[in-house]
Amino acid sequence: MAYATMGDGVRLFYEVAGTGSPIVFVHEFGGNHWSWEPQVGYFSRRHRCVTYAARGYPPSDIPETVDQYSQERAAADVVDVMSAAGIEKAHIVGLSMGAFACVHAALRYPDRVLSAVVAGAGYGSERERQATFRENSEQVARGFEERGSEGFAPIYAESASRVQFQEKDPRGWQLFAERLAKHSVRGAANTMRGVQMRRPSLYDLETELATMQVPLLVVVGDEDDHSIQPGIFLKRTVPRSGLVMFPKSGHTLNLEEPALFNRVVAEFVAQVEAGRWGPRDPRADPRQIMRAD
């Protein structure tokens, strides 16, 4: 088992598979390093794939205090894992909480990031829902503490944007729920309070995002309601960005639609590596409907 030591001394478990240009996968709150198995099996045929368990997720360390969890630290953890694996630059792929980490890593460490895939990002960003999101996050943290992971996992796994996965792939969803039931109570509660509740809205990053030159692919499900508008915002704001929307899909995109997810990410990475993922053509003026002169 390989471990990377972060800047603050926390050790994170990571795994490497395959050879080729590196791809680092960053998991969501409800997942862990196992969440990327459909991607590792596919991409390791031609890429060096790295997965890791975030702080608070066994077998990584579980820091005791909530102050050891933050959005800033989550972004730094991405590049610290890369450094431990001997990787200078990588494509980074994140879902939900991991997608936010990828956005912040691309902003803070653009010289280390070849490209970023941001899937299912946006929770807590909508201005009118920020207070509700923070209240809901605290409820989730208490749910883990009061019911334990085994007791709370079935509730969380049937969230409004998770039932699409359950409907399409009951076996895959059940495995997701079973793994969620093994999460550390302390790690889950601290992650929810330290990272999720405190992270800035994507809209607060507009100035920085508008000048970011890292190639970006935004992926959302059309039934993942609280990611749709933030996803459109990212597309309209980040110069070298593209947007993909999966039909009849919720939040757990890489597991819910693994073949589609792999295909769009593979095409994106191929275009980036070919130097073909540039900024929007200036002739594509969004103010124009049809050219008339």
Rank of each mutant, 00 (worst) to 15 (best):
T191Y: 05
S161I: 04
E145N: 05
Q166Y: 09
G187F: 01
I155S: 09
E208V: 10
M197H: 10
Y203A: 00
S161D: 14
F176N: 00
E167M: 13
E145C: 06
H183Y: 13
G148N: 08
L180Y: 03
D204K: 12
G194V: 00
L175F: 05
R193N: 11
Y156C: 10
E158F: 10
V218G: 00
L216T: 13
P200Q: 15
A153E: 03
K168S: 15
Q213K: 10
R171W: 09
V195Y: 05
T211M: 12
K168T: 13
R171F: 12
N190Q: 08
R171T: 15
E150K: 08
G151L: 12
P170K: 12
L175R: 14
T191K: 06
S149L: 10
R193Y: 01
A153R: 04
V185F: 09
L180E: 04
R193E: 01
L217D: 00
V218N: 00
A188I: 00
W173N: 01
T211V: 12
V195I: 09
S184Q: 08
R193P: 04
E146N: 12
Q196H: 07
N190S: 10
R193I: 03
P215E: 02
N190W: 03
A157W: 00
L217H: 08
E208G: 06
P170C: 14
P200T: 10
G148P: 03
Q213T: 14
Y156N: 05
Q213W: 02
N190G: 06
M192F: 07
K182G: 15
A181R: 00
R147T: 03
R193F: 02
E150Y: 04
E146V: 13
A160F: 07
L175I: 11
A210L: 08
P200H: 12
G187T: 04
K168I: 13
I155W: 03
M197A: 11
E145M: 05
A189L: 06
F144K: 00
Q174W: 02
V218L: 00
S149W: 03
R186W: 09
